[in-house]
């Protein structure tokens, strides 16, 4: 093999290696990296949003400090996941019995355009009476979604209609407003009530 040819091949190999390393960096640590998964929601005291509950009262995250909380996102034009989540939560609350009365249970809409205060009130009246429905301006909803490190996205479905992709996990906080855990949509439902009890107990032991 000619010396010049060898140098040529070596350069090509080194070049390919560098390219592979660069591509790896770009996708794992660099600008091409996916958004960090599983970021913890902020503490309630650090969240900054103002919304309106289904009775028309002004509310914010600090309103929730003092009791353990279950918070989840959804929208009332959601035919499958949201009524299923709300009916699951209604069952958990019934299983908790009297302890359910010690919780805040908050459904925050990701679709304020259609989910007015009246729409939220009509919708949640079909589920466990302790559940509250919060809505507000798009900007304030976006700040709430950000505070919980959740996601929501408007997706057109044709003929001017749209649906919302959104985080379906239920967020659990202790009475001090500190994040405890989530109940994910796809996890076995029998884990839910013990997790809620843990959030209640965590509050009692400090």
């Amino acid at each position: 093999m000619q010396r010049r040819q060898l140098i040529g091949y070596s350069a090509a190999v080194v070049g390919a290696l560098c390219l592979a390393l660069f591509a790896g960096w770009w996708r794992v640590d660099g600008p091409g990296a996916p958004a960090p998964a599983g970021q913890r929601p902020l503490a309630m005291s650090e969240m900054d949003f103002r919304l309106t509950d289904h009775q028309g009262k002004e509310v914010d995250a600090v309103t929730l400090i003092g009791r353990p909380s279950l918070v989840f996102f959804g929208f009332t034009y959601c035919p499958d996941i949201c009524p299923t989540t709300l009916s699951d939560i209604s069952v958990w609350l019934s299983d908790l019995g009297d302890d359910a009365g010690r919780l805040n249970v908050i459904f925050i809409t990701v679709d304020p355009e259609r989910d007015t205060v009246a729409a939220m009130a009509a919708y949640i009246s079909n589920f466990h009476p302790i559940i509250q429905g919060w809505t507000g301006s798009s900007e304030q909803i976006a700040r709430a979604v950000e505070g919980f490190r959740a996601n929501s996205e408007k997706v057109p479905t044709g003929s001017g209609d749209y649906t919302m992709n959104h985080t379906a996990s239920v967020f659990l906080f202790d009475a001090n407003g500190r994040f405890v855990s989530t109940i994910d949509y796809h996890e076995p439902r029998e884990y839910a009530v013990p997790k809620i009890r843990r959030a209640i107990d965590k509050t009692e032991t400090g």
């Binding site: 958004a35 959601c78 499958d80 996941i81 996601n151 985080t167 989530t182 994910d184 949509y185």
Partner: peptide, 14 residues
């Protein structure tokens, strides 16, 4: 017929 699915970030879509 639609399918709801949840990704590994907990985001559901349809």
């Amino acid at each position: 017929i639609h399918r709801s699915s949840t990704d590994d970030q907990g985001v559901t879509s349809m």
